[in-house]
Design a protein around this nucleic acid. Sequence first.
DNA 1: CTGTTGTTTCGGTTTATTCCGAATATAACG
DNA 2: CGTTATATTCGGAATAAACCGAAACAACAG
Lengths: 177, 177
Amino acid sequence: MTNLTPTAQKFIIHWGEMGERWGINRTIAQIHALLYITSKPLNAEEICDALSLARSTVSVGLRELQNWKIVKVVHVLGDRTDHFETLGDVWEMFRVIVNNRKCQELDPTLEMLREAVGILETNQEDPHTLKKLTGMLDLFETVSSVYEQAKDIPTKTVVRIAKMSNIVSKILKVFPD
Amino acid sequence: MTNLTPTAQKFIIHWGEMGERWGINRTIAQIHALLYITSKPLNAEEICDALSLARSTVSVGLRELQNWKIVKVVHVLGDRTDHFETLGDVWEMFRVIVNNRKCQELDPTLEMLREAVGILETNQEDPHTLKKLTGMLDLFETVSSVYEQAKDIPTKTVVRIAKMSNIVSKILKVFPD
DNA sequence: CTGTTGTTTCGGTTTATTCCGAATATAACG
DNA sequence: CGTTATATTCGGAATAAACCGAAACAACAG
């Protein structure tokens, strides 16, 4: 970590802490931050040195990041080792992360609620629970539906619209009561 | 947990697991699920019995839920004990939770990035890191701005729009390239 | 003031996670 | 093949988080 500027170091440390709040392992988030801030592909050994981590920890961390599809293997000419880099575009990265969280946090509950409501509807035994779970299911279905519609819009378009001034009030005007 | 229907039990257990993925303590999420599914105010003792938890655990959990403003104290006539209930409207609850996560997960990073970019801009010593952090800051600023615009819209309005069919493509049509 | 009921704090145990490093696997090359 | 370089797996130690229960605290009625 010594050949990094102080601000870069601070960023890596903070990104690790933020990762924890996001339910991501601190060291894995730090590896990601390092790759992001360095912008040239690093091999595992270099990551170990930079962050003082065991080789195995880095190996596991990199695989996790690859599973999330925010880190990719790159091969550098004249070097046998695997090198790694993050998605260059932060917006692309953001969308991938949001998608992962949606899959991990929304989908399983959605499935569970559908199943539960299905059972209760055929049972007819517990109208109260049915009512409560239906309300919750409706929420999850709606959020999920909006997300599904939005996720295939090109990033460029999403960013353009998000960056318009007062975008929300503009949308509100289009859909009056 | 025995005087709960099997589906209600399953819901509570699943909600606990989901809570973990959301970075929320499992038992606290279970307490919340219990209050949601029961819909009549419960006192701490009843929660202990239902979930087989220590009185202190429930106490801490309830306080946490009250801090997040998704559980409120209610007083029942002729009973000295505090009773607790969740926000009845799931949408209201959803928005409160999203807001909490925004405060915990976005704001600290936003602040850190602003500070870091400020330092690097005056320094002029590390243009590369400046560029990377500026890109990240731009993302966080944009997301935060859209959220700030949206958060004060009445829940009723948000739900009405979210539930429109093909809402996303409708919005896209309003803002062509 | 005192007993009763209800709530919170706190230390310690239990449980889960993270991380290391040795051992093992895989691949490259002579 | 055997040797070297690289990557991964896995058991267990270090660390962190959750949870309990005893004790302290607070509110209140009589």
